[in-house]
Computed example of a mutant assay.
Amino acid sequence: MRVKCVICDALNDIPDFSPLAKKLRNRPTHTYMCPSCQDRITEKTNARLATGNFRFIRRAVQEEEEF
């Protein structure tokens, strides 16, 4: 399956029967990010978390704590 990165517009091939391909076919709201873009975003997010000024809010964790 040919996929296009939403950030850098790079074209990649992924196996047709991989879980990622199935997710992209069945749920059109999900988008594909190439590994290099995903690594870059991960590094920048971790750098922001390390500063202490960035709060990483996860909704599911907050809802579990309320109960």
Rank of each mutant, 00 (worst) to 15 (best):
E64G: 00
F56I: 01
C8H: 02
E64V: 02
K44D: 10
D13S: 13
A10Q: 01
V6I: 13
K22P: 01
Q38P: 03
K4Q: 11
F54W: 14
Q62F: 07
R55A: 02
I14G: 11
E43P: 00
R59C: 04
E64N: 03
P28E: 05
R58A: 00
Q62K: 13
A47V: 05
I7K: 13
K23R: 05
E43C: 01
M1Q: 09
I7M: 10
C5L: 06
L49I: 15
N26H: 06
K44A: 05
D16Q: 11
Q38F: 13
L49Y: 12
I14L: 07
T45E: 04
L11T: 13
F54D: 12
T31L: 10
A47F: 06
R55H: 03
A47Q: 15
V6L: 11
A21T: 01
E63L: 02
C8L: 01
I7L: 14
T42R: 09
H30F: 15
S36Y: 03
L49E: 12
D39I: 07
C8G: 02
Y32T: 07
D13W: 14
H30E: 14
D39V: 04
A50H: 12
P28F: 03
K44Q: 12
C34W: 08
Q62T: 02
C34N: 08
M1N: 08
P19K: 03
A47T: 11
I7W: 09
S36A: 05
C37I: 03
K4T: 13
A21E: 08
D9W: 01
R2L: 15
E63M: 05
S36D: 09
T29M: 11
D16R: 09
K4H: 00
E66G: 00
N26Y: 09
P28L: 06
N12P: 00
A47E: 15
I7N: 13
F67E: 12
F56N: 15
A21W: 07
L11S: 13
N12A: 08
C5F: 04
P35Q: 07
T45W: 03
E66I: 05
R40D: 13
V6W: 00
A21K: 02
A50E: 15
L20A: 11
R27Q: 09
R40I: 02
R40G: 09
Q38W: 12
Y32F: 14
R59S: 05
E43S: 09
Q62P: 00
T31V: 08
A60D: 15
G52Q: 04
S18H: 13
G52K: 04
V61M: 04
I7P: 11
A50Q: 15
F54R: 11
Q38K: 15
Y32R: 08
F56G: 01
E65R: 12
N26W: 02
Y32W: 15
K44W: 03
L11M: 13
T51E: 15
P35S: 07
A50M: 08
P15I: 02
T29Q: 11
N26M: 04
Y32P: 08
P15C: 05
T42I: 04
T42K: 10
K4E: 15
E43Q: 06
E63H: 01
T51Y: 09
C34F: 06
P15F: 04
R48I: 00
C5T: 04
R2M: 13
